[in-house]
Design a protein around this nucleic acid. Sequence first.
DNA 1: ATAGGGTTAG
Length: 596
Amino acid sequence: MASRCIARGAAISSESGKLSTYFLFPENVESPRLGHQTENRPNQDRLLESQPSGSSSSSSLNPLLGALARARKNRALLIVFDRMSSELNLVPDSTSLNILINCYCHLRRSALAFSVLGTILKRGHDPDIVTFTSLIYGLCAEGKASDAVFLLMKIIGMGFSPDVKTWSTLVNGLCRTGNAEAALRFHQNTFIGNMASAGGFRVGFVPDSVYYIALIGCLCKSGLVEKAKGLLLEMESKGLNADAPSYSSLINGFCRMNEWDQAKELFNRMIDRGLPPDVVTFTILMGYLCKSGKTNDAAQLLDIMIRRGQRPNAVTYNTLINGYCLEGDVDRARSLFDSMASEGYEKDTVTYTSLIHGYFANQRPAEAMDLFREMLDGGLEPCPVTFKVLLRGLFRSGKFELARDIYCSKMKGNDAVLGSDVCKILLDGFCRSGCAGDAMELFETLEPDIKMCTSLLSGLCRAGELDLAVELFDCRLPSLGVEPDEVAYSILVKGLCRYGRLDDADRMVTEMEERGIVPDVVMYNVLMRGFCDSNDAGKVVEILRRMADRRVAPDSYTTTVVMELMSREDNRASGILDSIPSFGQGVRRDKCARSL
DNA sequence: ATAGGGTTAG
């Protein structure tokens, strides 16, 4: 099969063309999964059979491939590709391979896309800016924005000239991965520094309206409203007119920023300019109304939209269903949900997840679970968000066993749904329900970062599993190469103090001090409170001195502890109080003395 | 004949 050849091409790509040595291929190049038995097979058969067999190049099939790509029939496209070489002995040319790369990128299989790049290089073809734009898209779509930037820099260094499509892909990708500031920097360094050069190569380009809208939408999503407005003016001053999708994007941006008047103004402007709002535009406005607690207004807008001849789509339904759930009217949401099928709409993961969330939020866990089972029975794959909603709901409503069952039967070993969010919920839930061991076990299967560790640590401390917490901190963190931060220390120290393990807590604080992390006043306070309660005045004074040495300012809680020490006869008699350090501002004399 | 932009769930 062609795909197998392509994968083999990737395996030896590092020793093939000169270009390949410049690229870092993803380490785990997957083997292609082709031969999907879906979509319109008969039609393709006819098209394929009409091709003369025995010809060597696939170029005659490119119009078909292009049409499938434009129609986003990615699976069908892979089938055609597969059969192209297996049955028709056609060798794909570079255009076909570019289409294949783009297809893999849209399917979020950038590793496969890179393996196709390997094939291009191996066959002595030259990848072009189209190839790389697709790859940049694919990397961003998988959240690998820094790899995308790296690739871009690499190809600029090699003499490729990114064009306006490359840049808008990158800007969008950076934005989608939460890097709006970076997108703006690229904008300023490329277009603003118009036709600037990097290493002797031109990187400038002429921005068009798609590019501007991508950037403006990106800024809106990040709340950089003034910058977005400025760019809108800049765009219009260049005579670039927004089209309908542009307006939708802008309207969405202003809605997100709660600039309803601006959004309305754009909506009206759109109509004035003869660009009728479509289902997406209306759905955006409905979504805003729903989020503002005006679901009934959103429903009215739906009527207006229908009267204007725009048919709602499944997203419109999802938006309204979620709206009713948010305002607590789950039954109304449910009747919309039930009407979808008869109206010819397909319920998807978002539909189910919204309503499941609605049931949990309104204390109806049984119905939420019914819906989840219905979803599985219907062959819909729950996504990470679905699991997040489900598990949080189950833990919050005390259905610990059920939550554990779901985890064991549906999630364990399924990395695709074990995102960090849902893992935190699981770790926390297991700890809360007395299953700290399960939490530890799950933790061992993860690639933990400091935040994950902190999550588990805080769960263990809350559950009183201090031994496990200390073990995690002292043994597992170092072996995982995770450096505890101030937050982690503070959680553990507070936990230890709450359970009376003052010496361990003191050891932690000392360790922090030795590592140059300055404990905050709250950590010193909990520690001193503990020693004060166990009548260890010497220790409290020692801690005060450590505080003073690090110029950590005492607060009123510190004062209370000190006052308590002073009020005890034996402390006054022992003279230990004379060693209380001065904090510059003179805590002892001013605050304590006065209140005493 | 190939690359970029708009909507939904937490």
